[in-house]
Amino acid sequence: HNLTITQGKLFFHYNPKLCLSEIHKMEEVSGTKGRQERNDIALKTNGDQASCENELLKFSYIRTSFDKILLRWEPYWPPDFRDLLGFMLFYKEAPYQNVTEFDGQDACGSNSWTVVDIDPPLRSNDPKSQNHPGWLMRGLKPWTQYAIFVKTLVTFSDERRTYGAKSDIIYVQTDATNPSVPLDPISVSNSSSQIILKWKPPSDPNGNITHYLVFWERQAEDSELFELDYCLKGLKLPSRTWSPPFESEDSQKHNQSEYEDSAGECCSCPKTDSQILKELEESSFRKTFEDYLHNVVFVPRKTSSGTGAEDPRPSRKRRSLGDVGNVTVAVPTVAAFPNTSSTSVPTSPEEHRPFEKVVNKESLVISGLRHFTGYRIELQACNQDTPEERCSVAAYVSARTMPEAKADDIVGPVTHEIFENNVVHLMWQEPKEPNGLIVLYEVSYRRYGDEELHLCVSRKHFALERGCRLRGLSPGNYSVRIRATSLAGNGSWTEPTYFYVTDYLDVPSNIA
């Protein structure tokens, strides 16, 4: 807008934040220059609390790290170098490059900038070799853009010569660093050979998330399962459950009422301010606690030095998902009996873990797994792929695949051998790939016309006998059925096997 004052003059007093240069501009645009008398524009009460600059400061050096910015700028000295009290560095987070010096300023003089007072450097006698002032900004957020400017702080001049310097606002972004852990990993099994893994992005990506790394490792069953005799009275049979499938998407929606109208769909109840505040506090606490764990609990591995020492970490090797089922080394339970199943799973520490690289999504279907087997899954978020990966501390989750139908069934015939004193040795093959492992066998036998009897055969007993022995049988026709019990439950009964026990007292003698 054009402003013209045809008559009258300007009068400025007691404006401590208004620089004289701005008042002189007002004289020019209003056409009143030359009308004012000496005392109409006070030299001592206008701009006496402001830094009124008329020179431009330029930054000469900028260096960044993930949490620091090192700045240096060209030296500046007023005509009387004693008038320079120091520099004021202003900075704040700036997602967009549209910041002005006066953003967030209120009537009390406060604003949204963080201000650092910096002492002037030592003055050199040689004007050509003056030290460049600077400042190291610490405690910054990774991968965050900051708006920065600097200006001088000078003393009051009796001659009211307006001098000083100020830089333009520059924008500097800190470097990326390792992201925080992925949030809320959930693993479920939808079949006997697959596990579905879902997660949420890290709360602090500290860069642009480029991919996720998912490692999985087959877990050995508890050692007590191999040692305890679950045929003993009072000892509860062990059981394991597989990871249940995901709930429906509708039930997972946030901010939804727990109660549904019987007449149909209901609208979600909005969260109160107290609920939102509580969630923010919980989120802040979780982030602080995660940072504490990362800094205190997890110790970084030592990389190899120039002395030739090897990095103890196993090298990563990509495998196809079809090879995942046989990740671990199978060892027989008892070496003397080769027909026992290889369900003991000690994992070799030198073995390469299978892994998958996930790009542009937060889910993965891990296939080719062994049925009813526990897996430990390790999830890392990465925001750099080359020249070397920059990934987060791992988040861990466990899951067990679903049982395989008929995996616990005894394959092959049940054979028998009759000894003296009416002892019958029953023999059968253990299931080759049971659900988890076989903890015991149930032997059901009966003599024709009598009630059915049951015998429990422990895992250890089966390994020693290759089956079991029935003792003290009365003469007669017998039928026997056997079924295995694994961590997933009972298998199917075998087809009945028949044998006849004679009275050993009636056996004919070869003595003449």
Rank of each mutant, 00 (worst) to 15 (best):
E247F: 11
H352I: 04
S344H: 12
F215D: 10
N206D: 03
R466S: 13
K271E: 07
T210S: 15
E227R: 08
I418Y: 06
E495N: 12
G489R: 10
Q252E: 14
K236M: 09
A394Q: 11
V507R: 13
E417T: 12
R316E: 09
P403S: 07
V296Q: 11
S243E: 04
Y498I: 14
S223G: 05
N326H: 13
A336K: 12
G467S: 02
L232W: 04
E404P: 02
F285V: 05
F372D: 04
E356V: 13
R313C: 14
F355T: 08
H425A: 14
L437M: 06
T401Y: 00
A336P: 11
Q256V: 09
V359W: 06
V214W: 00
V365W: 04
S474L: 08
N339P: 10
S268F: 03
R218S: 12
S257V: 07
K317L: 12
S458W: 04
Y504Q: 13
F499G: 00
E290W: 05
E388Q: 13
G436S: 02
N383R: 04
E388Y: 14
S398R: 12
L440R: 06
F355E: 08
V359C: 13
V414D: 00
K236P: 12
C231N: 03
S305T: 13
S284G: 11
N422V: 03
E258M: 06
D273E: 11
L237C: 14
S268I: 11
V507T: 13
E310N: 06
A336N: 09
N255P: 15
F246M: 08
N383E: 02
A309Q: 11
Y396H: 14
G491H: 02
V397T: 03
N255S: 09
S341A: 04
T415R: 11
L321T: 13
P300C: 09
Y441S: 01
R446L: 12
Q219A: 06
E378A: 12
P332H: 12
T494P: 01
G306I: 13
G322T: 10
P387F: 12
L440N: 14
L440P: 00
Y504P: 07
S251Y: 06
L237P: 07
D503S: 12
P354W: 10
P434V: 10
Y445A: 14
E356R: 10
K302Q: 11
H416E: 04
V345W: 12
N490R: 15
W428Y: 02
T497H: 08
N206W: 11
E281V: 09
S284N: 10
I209G: 11
L369R: 02
I377L: 13
F462E: 02
K233P: 14
I438G: 01
S444G: 13
V327W: 15
Y292N: 08
Y478H: 08
L369P: 01
S367I: 09
G308M: 15
E452L: 09
F289M: 06
T502L: 13
G234Q: 09
F215N: 10
R400M: 07
S444M: 07
R459L: 10
E389C: 06
E452C: 12
Y478I: 01
P244H: 13
E217M: 01
G467E: 02
Y500I: 08
L225Q: 10
V329T: 03
E217S: 08
V439C: 07
L437N: 10
I418P: 07
E227N: 12
P312K: 06
T272I: 06
I438T: 11
D385R: 07
S474A: 09
Y230P: 06
S274W: 09
L277D: 06
R313M: 02
P387L: 09
K271A: 14
D503Y: 09
L379V: 06
N422T: 08
I276F: 08
I418H: 04
S344G: 04
S492F: 11
N255E: 07
D229A: 11
V457K: 05
E279L: 15
L487M: 10
K460Q: 08
L364P: 00
Q256W: 09
E221W: 15
L321W: 09
K236F: 06
S342F: 10
V324S: 08
S479N: 02
A399H: 13
Y230S: 06
E362W: 14
L277Q: 09
V443A: 03
R447M: 03
N326R: 09
T401M: 01
L455Q: 08
D291I: 08
V358A: 07
V397S: 11
A407T: 11
D503W: 13
V480Q: 02
I377Q: 02
D323Q: 15
I482C: 03
S444N: 09
C269W: 08
T272D: 08
A330R: 02
V329M: 12
Y445P: 01
T401N: 01
A220L: 11
H352S: 06
V329D: 15
P434D: 00
Y478C: 00
P346S: 12
P354G: 12
S479V: 07
L440M: 08
P434N: 03
H254I: 09
F215V: 13
M427A: 12
I482D: 00
K357A: 12
E224N: 15
R240I: 10
T272Y: 12
R447I: 07
R447F: 02
T415Y: 13
L293S: 04
V296A: 13
L235D: 05
V365I: 07
A407Y: 06
P300Q: 10
Q252I: 09
Q252Y: 08
T307D: 15
F372P: 00
H454Y: 15
A407I: 02
N208K: 14
W428F: 04
K406R: 06
N326F: 09
Q429R: 04
P314K: 13
I482T: 01
S284L: 08
V327F: 07
S492I: 12
N490A: 04
H371R: 13
E451L: 12
E388N: 13
Y500C: 14
V365Q: 13
E356F: 09
T288S: 07
S342A: 14
V424K: 01
P245L: 13
G207H: 03
V507L: 02
Q429G: 15
T307A: 06
R301Q: 14
L225S: 09
L232R: 14
Y504T: 13
R469K: 03
V296T: 09
W428P: 00
T502I: 03
V299S: 09
E260W: 13
L379C: 09
E417C: 04
T415W: 03
A463F: 12
D385K: 14
K271S: 06
G449W: 03
E452M: 08
K233A: 14
E433V: 14
T333N: 08
R481P: 00
R319T: 09
G264D: 15
N383P: 02
A336S: 12
K287C: 11
A309S: 13
S262L: 10
V359T: 12
Q380N: 13
E221R: 06
R481I: 05
P245V: 08
G412V: 07
T343R: 06
C391R: 01
F246R: 05
A335N: 12
P354T: 12
P354H: 12
E221M: 15
R318P: 08
